[in-house]
Design a protein around this nucleic acid. Structure first.
Length: 274
DNA sequence: AAGCACGTCAACCGCCTGGAT
DNA sequence: AATCCAGGCGGTTGACGTGCT
């Protein structure tokens, strides 16, 4: 038996939200709180799918959401966390107060991926300067006609026990582990405010933080990924040829020696917990 | 000025998980 | 144990804006 759709979709509005709809949704949630997304549209007088309401609230209307202007420090942290976690956007977003998984995902796909590719390309050129000269042509092709992306790395689905096994055996992998999506624990719950999350994370005791981390079944192996090359790029233990194929390449986009800031602290604490 | 190509990002889709029954 | 439900997540789409020819 297939799953029933979350809503009938018949007669429901789709597409961009109007300011009136935003107001209705915000007012309703301020009065009644989050949750009950399926019944929320009806109760709030919205002709929207419950999922759509939740998404709109989570990614746009929720208080404390920062929009745009992702700083270089934030980019740096996103890149580093992505190297650890892979496409676990919700977890990455949980480490960036006020940022949503959707925004980070978009930013990664539209900005950082290109930036990383550029860095990787330069790095590859520096190591293969005796080989072919590749001309970078401006891509004029439409998206749909673009060359297919390189084959994704084999999906590594790691259960808790698998992860423990790998830890115990000391087995490493060449690529960021991409554990199956899991429901984020209460500590990382998206229903918590980002501010409180950040506050808890950066100020909590190490024990509390460790306990929090223990709840998250995000296993991350620890490859030798912090080998800083002369070009300012960290190379990990992955295949040397392709970042997208799973090899680690961890450029320090805005790294300054001794530049200790909040995001760095967050990252350091995250590393310790892992 | 017009048409086209490309970039951005809000929104949608389908699948998955945990909890309830 | 099996099934259903609600919510969460990541991948993808498509409308819109912008720059180029």
């Amino acid at each position: 038996m297939g799953r029933s759709p979350c809503c009938s979709k018949v007669g429901l509005r789709r597409g961009p939200w109007s300011t009136k709809e935003d107001t209705l949704l915000s007012n309703y949630i301020q009065l009644h709180g989050e949750g009950q997304w399926r019944s929320l549209p009806k109760n709030a007088g919205l002709l929207r799918c419950g999922k759509s309401c939740r998404l709109r609230w989570m990614n746009y209307l929720r208080p404390g959401i920062k929009r745009g202007n992702i700083s270089e420090d934030e980019e740096d942290l996103i890149v580093r966390l992505h190297g650890l976690l892979g496409n676990r956007w919700s977890l990455i977003a949980g480490r960036l107060p006020g940022r949503t998984d959707n925004e980070i995902k978009n930013h990664w796909n539209t900005h950082l991926l290109k930036k990383l590719k550029g860095i990787q390309h330069r790095a590859a050129k520096s190591t293969n300067n005796n080989t072919k000269k590749t001309t970078v042509k401006k891509q004029k092709k439409k998206k749909v006609a673009a060359a297919p992306p390189p084959p994704p790395p084999p999906e590594v689905k790691v259960t808790t026990t698998q992860a423990e096994g790998i830890i115990n055996t000391g087995t490493t992998t060449d690529q960021p582990i991409k554990p199956k999506p899991i429901r984020v624990s209460a500590v990382f719950s998206r229903t918590n405010s980002y501010d409180s999350l950040a506050s808890n994370w950066t100020t909590s005791s190490s024990e509390a933080a460790a306990a929090a981390a223990a709840e998250v079944v995000s296993f991350v192996p620890w490859p030798p990924m912090f080998q800083l090359g002369g070009d300012g790029v960290c190379y990990g233990g992955g295949e040397e040829d392709d970042f997208l194929a799973g090899g680690f390449i961890l450029p320090l986009l805005n790294h300054h020696e001794g530049d200790v800031n909040t995001l760095d602290q967050v990252y350091d604490e995250y590393l310790q917990l892992l």
